[in-house]
């Protein structure tokens, strides 16, 4: 079970969290102006890296907040986490 650093509550067990996919993918401000291909890229294309991955988690059984974290997909080690709207440290 991973130990996940919640930026509000500190390190907490994975059981309290849900995974919420890749980070830094903002909903386009004007979806109507996008082509089908651009819209499909927003919906479905993800980087799926081997190594450091910026991703979102929600401390659903804790403070309830969504936040960003950077995790090594090889070692499962978290590097750090940050609040939405903030820049990674």
């Amino acid at each position: 079970m991973l130990l996940i650093p919640c930026p509000y509550c500190g390190p907490r067990p994975e059981l309290e969290f849900t995974y919420a996919g890749e980070a830094n993918i903002s909903r386009p401000a004007e979806p109507e102006s996008l082509s089908d291909e651009q819209w499909a890229a927003y919906l479905y294309q993800r980087t799926n890296p081997r190594g450091m991955h910026a991703e979102r988690w929600r401390h659903v059984h804790g403070c309830g907040r969504y936040f960003n974290a950077s995790r090594d997909t090889l070692s499962d080690q978290f590097q750090f986490s940050w609040k939405p709207g903030e820049s990674p440290p």
């Binding site: 509550c9 067990p13 059981l15 309290e16 059984h61 804790g62 403070c63 309830g64």
Partner: peptide, 8 residues
């Protein structure tokens, strides 16, 4: 004492 949190 005084700590509180949602948990499982």
């Amino acid at each position: 004492v005084g700590m509180c949190t949602r948990t499982i």
